[in-house]
Simulated scan of single mutants.
Amino acid sequence: MPADAPADRSRRDACPGAVTVHSAADGGLARIRVPGGTMTAPQFHAVFAASAALGDGQLELTSRANIQIRGLRPGAEAKLAERLREAGLLPSLSHERVRNIIASPLGADQPLVDELDRELCSWPELAGLPGRFLITVDSQGDVSGLGGDVGLARVGPDWALLLAGQDTGVRVPENQTVTTVIAAAQAFLVERRQQGSTAWRLHELTEGPQRILRRLALPVTRRRLMVRPAVPLRTGFATPRTLVVGAPLGRLDAAQCRELLRAAGPTLRLTPWRSVVLRGVEPSTIIGRDLITDPNSPWHGVTSCAGRPGCVKALADVRADAAAWLRERPEPSTQRVHWSGCSRRCGRPQGQVIDVVATEEGYEVNEKLTTDTAAALAVARRNT
């Protein structure tokens, strides 16, 4: 859904989880929350082994640095939950859909994320947060622009408190970060209840950030942090021994998962740009299996929803069409491009994006209708 589209919250938030599985055209869809994006190598192996045994054998990386399994057979939820619990990826059944914490993929903030996650799961009322409610922890200036409901952004020795993606002027000492974020999440639930609202996100409340800030009653500075738009982390070596590996359209097959594990150290870190950060990688390491390591790859910045046949609402096989377009593209786009199987635009990144949207008549590219796939590809190429 585009950022400026009106929100319809008349229905229940049906955001899938690892236990609350969504029924898709290709079977059950489970979304496994990975706060901060960090997984141990055994955990990553456990997830793709679960997909091989219970689902379609592939993994999907999401725009919130989580991971999905598709094609689950009926009744597989209990077996999946058991596997995830044994791997340490399901610490709370009641809170598993609300453990939405994104952190800077190249930062060193996983201990803070882990503490936030434990505290979040310790408050029974916070299980009532919507599955879309998002917390960001930004030490590198790269994820605040993703528009979290509550966020922390590093400012010198302290952290700036962000609400609905904007700096509030509150500065939080290191030892008060967790309590402040939890208090803001609790205040959201109280304010939503008092407004009689069904909002899923903080900005959907009437004067949401202002009212939450008043409830927190924290001192405010006049200086404000300028929140920059989120820019996708490019694939390739980010440092001499830190490699960012992209997954084409965010999808990994079993061979690609094994290739990642072959090159990985003790941990892997998922990013909000459907890529994986590997640390301790030798500069001579070659990653194969059609994974993306070239910072100038034409796949950079291109995303899509599931499309046909996985989604019953999709009007086209957008993955195949996007791949066909990419095969004809000589160089990477200077803008991000998102292919959607219908007007819901699932998985669309935040910010400026060229929208290629399937309709009954063909594709719309930035709301201009074309009559066939070839024309859509040509328009998308001209726009990039």
Rank of each mutant, 00 (worst) to 15 (best):
R64Q: 06
A380V: 13
H95K: 05
Q68D: 10
V137L: 09
G27H: 05
P219L: 03
C257M: 02
R193V: 06
A108G: 15
H338Q: 09
M1W: 13
P6N: 02
D4T: 13
R308Q: 14
W339K: 09
S333A: 08
F237K: 08
V155K: 01
P16G: 03
Q210E: 12
I32D: 15
V98A: 08
S23D: 13
R154I: 06
F44A: 02
L260P: 00
G307L: 07
A184M: 11
L249D: 09
T359W: 02
V337A: 04
L61M: 07
T62L: 14
F44H: 00
R289A: 13
S104M: 04
G107W: 12
T359D: 05
R64N: 10
L93S: 08
E125Q: 15
I32Q: 08
G208F: 00
E174D: 14
L120V: 01
G71A: 02
F237E: 13
D355E: 07
T168D: 01
A378K: 13
G307I: 03
A18M: 04
A3M: 14
N66Y: 01
Q43M: 02
P240Y: 15
S122V: 01
P272E: 14
A322Q: 14
W299L: 11
G36V: 00
R73G: 09
L243P: 00
P332G: 07
L152I: 15
V277L: 01
E207P: 04
D138A: 01
E96K: 01
Q110H: 09
D117G: 11
I212M: 09
R222P: 10
D56I: 03
R222F: 09
V277F: 10
S10N: 08
V34S: 10
S275K: 07
H338C: 15
E115P: 02
A14P: 12
I287A: 15
W200K: 01
I101W: 05
A46H: 00
G169D: 01
V276P: 00
A320H: 03
R132S: 06
A5I: 04
K79P: 02
L270F: 11
L80S: 08
G27P: 14
S297N: 06
L106Q: 11
L243T: 07
W273H: 15
A3R: 14
C257K: 09
E328F: 04
A185E: 06
L268A: 00
G151C: 03
L106N: 07
E60R: 07
L315W: 14
A81L: 00
S284F: 14
D13S: 03
A50P: 06
R83C: 05
N383W: 07
S333F: 05
R234P: 12
Q140F: 11
T370L: 11
L161N: 01
I102V: 15
I102K: 05
L377N: 05
C311W: 02
V220N: 02
A380I: 01
R214W: 06
T334F: 13
